[in-house]
Simulated scan of single mutants.
Amino acid sequence: MNRHLSAATAAGELDDVAPAWDGDNGQWWDWYMSLAENGAAPRLLEVPPPDPGPLPDDDAVAAELEVPYEVPPGVVEAFAADGFVVLPGVVSPGAAEVLRLRLADLLGAAGTDSGLRAREMLWLADPLVRAAVLSPRIAGISAALLGVETLRLYHDSALCKEPGAGRTPWHRDAHHFPLASHDVISTWMPLQPVPAAMGPLSFARGMDTWRLVEDLPFDKVGTSYDRRVAETLREAGVAVHEEPFALGDVSFHSTLCLHTAGANATTRPRMVLGATYYADGARVVDQPTMVSGDWQLFVPDTAPGEVAASPRNPVVTSP
């Protein structure tokens, strides 16, 4: 039994995720983080705070994110082949620090069982987060990588992995998002440098690599699924991109891309602003499951099978 599950979500077989999630998304994150295999607690590494220089005001950050980003040659092709890309200099050090401070205020200091503090839909509460999440710069990169003209927002995510917090389990977002489309892309914008010890996002290379694990039974109670995915990737010789993030780097990954994130074995919190976008016209799947959390918070007043186009799913505009 997993203590984060209600009687309704724990019922049935270990791989039975058909019940709807019946808690909030903070509880969902505590449950999901409990599915990652972790070793002994590491000794925390001291890391210095970043020095971003003079900080811009909110208007300057928003203006920066209005400017198009020139996607380098070969990046679109690399994304199609690998399922992810990491791009340098998407945000300036000053903009990253301003966003980090804002997310710290918005998340507050409440503790969690997992050591991961998370909130979604902050774009509805804060103009600066709204400017970042709906920015033409991020939208332009995302649309170019997917090769679609019009994207909508699924949700944003403020993720703070506290010192000592453990791994995020191996997964692919298509298993989570209740969207009947593979034209879905997620961004991961760390708001400080992320050395290896801080737990950067890591990706299994290959857009179709997920097929190696599609028949593995999911374990909603323990860590066996996470362990079996890692074993399968090793046995198949799949290359895993697990590189540090420099300040200003932003990653973009497909909903099909298998990915994980390491434990934060440093003395500083790891703050990230993430967001997920999907091609306009996508529908909600016919049977959302507990793995999608409280998805109706993100796509309200929309029934399974209907087009996901609520007021909380605005069109994001490329430059």
Score class of each variant (00 low, 15 high):
1 M>Q: 14
229 V>S: 14
105 D>N: 05
168 T>P: 00
173 D>Y: 01
26 G>S: 10
33 M>C: 15
293 G>C: 06
301 D>L: 12
286 D>G: 12
289 T>V: 04
142 S>E: 14
26 G>Q: 06
232 T>F: 10
32 Y>W: 10
70 E>R: 09
254 S>C: 07
27 Q>V: 05
11 A>C: 00
113 D>C: 00
230 A>N: 04
254 S>N: 07
189 M>D: 00
181 S>Q: 05
13 E>R: 15
223 T>E: 05
82 D>S: 12
65 L>M: 13
259 H>L: 13
191 L>E: 13
253 H>N: 15
206 G>Y: 08
22 D>R: 11
152 R>P: 08
91 V>G: 10
160 C>P: 00
266 T>Y: 02
77 E>D: 13
259 H>A: 09
220 K>H: 09
147 G>V: 05
118 A>Y: 14
170 W>Q: 04
14 L>M: 13
147 G>Y: 03
74 G>K: 02
228 R>I: 00
6 S>I: 11
250 V>G: 11
102 R>I: 09
175 H>T: 08
226 D>A: 06
300 P>F: 10
203 F>N: 08
158 A>P: 12
2 N>Y: 09
78 A>I: 08
305 G>R: 06
194 V>C: 15
135 S>V: 13
210 W>F: 12
300 P>E: 11
146 L>W: 05
81 A>M: 01
223 T>F: 01
13 E>H: 06
269 P>A: 08
262 G>V: 04
42 P>D: 12
39 G>R: 07
210 W>A: 06
146 L>Q: 03
97 E>R: 10
163 P>M: 14
260 T>H: 10
9 T>D: 09
53 G>E: 05
236 A>W: 11
281 G>K: 04
3 R>W: 02
290 M>S: 07
276 T>Y: 01
263 A>R: 14
113 D>F: 04
236 A>G: 08
108 G>Q: 07
33 M>N: 08
215 D>F: 00
221 V>L: 15
104 A>K: 09
305 G>V: 12
126 D>A: 04
182 H>K: 03
102 R>M: 11
158 A>Q: 06
271 M>D: 09
165 A>T: 10
45 L>N: 00
220 K>M: 05
160 C>M: 10
215 D>Y: 00
189 M>V: 09
157 S>R: 03
147 G>D: 05
261 A>Y: 07
267 T>Y: 01
316 V>K: 01
33 M>P: 00
38 N>H: 14
100 R>N: 15
209 T>S: 14
212 L>G: 04
